[in-house]
Nucleic acid binder design. Structure first.
Lengths: 218, 218
DNA sequence: GTCTATACCGGGATAGAC
DNA sequence: GTCTATCCCGGTATAGAC
């Protein structure tokens, strides 16, 4: 009963501290202090630190999936949904400027540690990747949907990293605005909005070629 | 004499190990073993681990600057020079797939550790940023040069992070090809190649608007 | 300048009382 | 379920012989 509550609190605080200080740097002492329990009590709930990491990644999976489902339900069009994705950079601006992208920084760290959970961390990226690809697919980009998803994901990731490194909120906002402007243009000429005029996959691709170019300022 | 050589070797191996395993995770034991000296001998050359980090960042500054100077000398046009920048993703492909971007991952880690050297690490990004901005400036993008520089830097950074997380060399290559294609288009319509037709800054900006859109596939 | 030996601390992890 | 006490290890850092 109370045990489950404590366990949840441990996961919640560990999640936060892993994000703020990094997995390796966040100690049991830190987490115990944050939860308000003794270090020893800890091991009743988790046998090792890696077990806590697993639980944290699970928690993040659930939260990410819930967020994506929410966007799916809210956004009327695929474009609106992708825009919601891009806007997490704004919604979480303060945290990103301070600590970077929660997924990117965790993934990067676990790779350095050669940790067994590195693939599970990368799996968090996959949730976004597949969701984005589905949106672009719905927009009619077919075979290019995944490439577009990776492009948006990579750019957002890079923006988060540099905004974090430079603590530059203006840069972050500008990039979000430009990504949205690009999305707008993409949607206007998307085959899904002009289904009658575009038939063959080759035509879609040719049209795509014209419109895929970087955005830098609004 | 031999001391200076040892010192250089320590910095060299520390640089490599900080990149491969991360600053915190790379221990004195690791570095000492790599250099082939005892842990104790270490402290004759550096009083603390932070001092080694400082030396490593200095070393990276020098190497980055030399690389940028080299590109400046080699590349005949600004576009060719920027292309050289983008191509480091290919040149260092193996290392990037395994360990990510040396600058991005170090910067990210030091921020998590709230390390005093975090700004010095971000300064490595600044070297690239300013150099890229100068290239775009030479291409005629004037006030937008820095924004373009940041855009390219951020995108490259994101590509490195995701290529690392997914160990996806095909993605990395595709993104480089697309970045180069975008550069090509940018250069064709750059005000520097058509100086007579473009006068006011507003015209440059308007023209710029048309051509800044994302690239996703080749 | 390089070594061995060692101090010291904080990390993760365990044992056992309550 | 939670605590205190403790273990063990590996980390950084120091002392002092050579």
């Amino acid at each position: 009963m109370g045990g489950a509550i404590t366990r949840d609190q441990i996961i919640e605080q560990a999640d936060r501290l892993f994000y703020e200080r990094g997995f390796e740097h966040a100690s049991f002492t830190d987490i115990a202090a944050a939860v308000g329990i003794s270090r020893g009590n800890f091991y009743y709930h988790f046998k090792t630190k890696d077990e806590i990491l697993d639980a944290v990644i699970d928690r993040r999976r659930v939260k990410v999936q819930a967020m994506l489902d929410g966007w799916e339900a809210e956004g009327r069009t695929p474009v609106e949904r992708v825009r919601r994705f891009v806007h997490i950079l704004i919604a979480n601006q303060t945290a990103i400027l301070r600590h970077g992208c929660p997924i990117g920084t965790l993934s990067t760290e676990l790779i350095k540690l050669n940790h067994t959970a590195q693939d599970r961390a990368a799996g968090l990226f996959t949730l976004f990747r597949d969701w984005l690809a589905r949106q672009f697919h719905a927009m009619g980009w077919g075979a290019d949907a995944d490439a577009l998803a990776m492009w948006v994901l990579a750019h957002s990731q890079g923006v988060a990293t540099l905004a974090n490194a430079f603590r530059d909120d203006a840069f972050l906002q500008r990039e979000v605005a430009d990504l949205c402007a690009w999305l707008e243009r993409l949607s206007v000429t998307s085959p899904s909005t002009t289904p009658a005029t575009v038939g063959a996959a080759a035509d879609v691709r040719r049209e795509f070629e014209v419109f895929r170019q970087p955005v830098t300022r609004a």
